[in-house]
Structures are given as C-alpha cells and as structure tokens.
C-alpha cells in the first residue's frame, strides 16, 4: 500500500520533470531554430556585392543594401553618442547623490520610459522633429533611438555603480581627494566594465528597433545624403522587403536579417563574456 503511494509520487515527479524540461527545451530551442533558419535562408544571398552595392531599381534583380548598412551605422551611432553619455552621467547622479524627491522623480520617469512601447517613443520623435520640419530625417530616427537608450543606460549604470564598495570611496576621500574626483577617477572606472556592458547591450537593442524608424528615418533606396533627409536602415529594409511581393526582395530580407542578427548577437556575446570574469 505504502509502496504504491510512493511509486505514484515518483511517477508524478518524473512526469513533471519531463514536462518542465520540455518547456525549457522549447524556450531555448526556439533560439537555435531561429538562428539556424536565418543562416540557412540568408547565407545563399549574402555576398560581397550584396554588402557594397546600392539597391537596384524596383523590378530589377540583384542589388545590395550598402545604403541600409551605412544608414543603420549613422542612425544608431548618433543615438549611442548622445544616449550613452547622458545615461551614464545621469546614472552617476542616481548612484552617488540619488536621495530625495528629485532622484525619486528621475527613477520613476526612467522606469515609466522603459515600459513605454518603442513605437510611442517614435511618435514623440515624429511630433518633436518630423512634424515641425515637415520632413523625415536620419536625425529624427536617431532622436527616437536615443530616447529609448537613455533610461536603460541610466538604470544599468546606477546598478553597477552601486556594486562599488563604499570602502573604496571612503579610502579615496580619506586621502583628501575632492569628492568629484573620487567619483570620476575612482568609482566610475571601478565599475567601468559593467557600465560599458550596459551601454553596449542598450546599443544592440536599439540597433534592431524598427517601429520608431518607420515614420522618422523612413527609409530611402538611394545612398544617404546628410542628416536631414530620409535614410535607409537595416531593420526597416528587412521589414519593407519582407512585406513586398517580390521573391528577390524576400531573399534579400533574409540576407539582411542574417547581417543584423550577426551584429546584435556578437555585441551581446561580447558584452556578456567580457563582463563574466569580474
């Protein structure tokens, strides 16, 4: 009798073990499936010519996506150049001075902004830049991505600075070093790796963002000309090619996806592996 109960409990245990293992396999396996499929579909269309040529006119076969690669680099680069420093310095404030109502308001606003969908941030950039200037522009796309980056970098910087032991600050202060120098030359470098990792992950995230670019950077089939004109980006090119009716464009969408995925994953891997030893 007791043996029967025990056997049943063992069976339930084994069953649930198998079920949850299957859940984990689906979660992790879907990544492998996505990666494998993109490599399989994309690899056949990626070539040197694809990377260095402009798109051909609609209806002609072939052509490349150099404009989208350059465009993404420009739009994401500017967003990072503005967004990362602002986020890091704001994070320094929160961690080193962040008590009281003002700091609470900053944290609260950062959490709210982190939860706001990226397309709404895109609407903001549209209302702020595109609508008054009456033109789609690379600048508006960068602004949208920077607004997405700043709160993320701010919070990750704060977290990593908080991990720096108070004794390090006290040791430096005891030597008579002014507080701002302690912060800038002792505390921030100590957490440097973590801060940089946070910024890199944020950069990888916005480089795959499409929604806020649809009506800010807009896309362009020609080589870019300046910051105040529409510009092509990789994710937006994938989107427009994927929903187009042309077989050739579908293949190019897979190839572009392979390039984007390669970039996003290598930044992610680099950031994570680099952080590990510390």
């Amino acid at each position: 009798m007791n043996d029967a109960v025990y056997a049943r409990r063992r069976k339930v245990n084994a069953l649930m073990f198998a079920l949850t293992a299957a859940c984990a396999a689906v979660s992790a396996g879907s990544l492998l499936m996505i990666l494998g499929y993109i490599v399989w579909k994309g690899a056949s269309s990626v070539s040197w010519a694809f990377l260095v040529n402009l798109p051909k006119p609609v209806g002609e076969q072939g052509g490349g996506i150099v404009n989208a690669i350059v465009g993404s680099a420009k739009v994401v680069g500017l967003a990072g150049l503005v967004g990362a420093p602002v986020g890091v310095l704001g994070g320094v404030y929160l961690s080193e001075y962040g008590r009281g109502k003002y700091a609470f308001a900053v944290r609260y606003a950062a959490d709210v902004m982190n939860g706001v969908p990226s397309i709404v941030v895109g609407l903001f950039a549209y209302a702020l830049i595109v609508h008054p200037m009456k033109r789609f522009s690379a600048l508006a796309g960068s602004a949208a991505l920077a607004f997405i980056m700043i709160p993320t970098v701010l919070r990750s910087t704060e977290e990593f600075l908080r991990l720096v032991p108070g004794t390090i600050r006290e040791a430096a202060l005891a030597l008579g070093v002014p507080r701002w120098k302690v912060t800038a030359f002792v505390v921030v470098p100590t957490a440097g790796r973590g801060i940089l990792t946070g910024a890199l992950l944020a950069l990888a995230r916005v480089s795959g963002e499409t929604a806020p670019l649809v009506f800010t950077a807009f896309g362009n089939r020609f080589a870019d000309n300046g910051w105040l004109n529409p510009i092509a980006t990789l994710p937006h090119t994938i989107y427009t090619y994927a929903i187009s009716p042309y077989e050739d464009w579908h293949n190019q969408a897979w190839a572009a996806a392979l390039i984007l995925m390669f970039f996003v994953l290598s930044v992610n891997l680099a950031a994570r592996l680099w952080l590990k030893p510390s």
């Binding site: 992790a28 994927a242 996806a257 996003v264």
Partner: peptide, 9 residues
C-alpha cells in the same frame, strides 16, 4: 539571447 532577437526578425 532569444530576448535579444529583434522583433522584425
């Protein structure tokens, strides 16, 4: 890493 896959992909 699955969380890092861009939604357009």
């Amino acid at each position: 890493l699955l969380a890092a896959v861009p939604s357009v992909i």
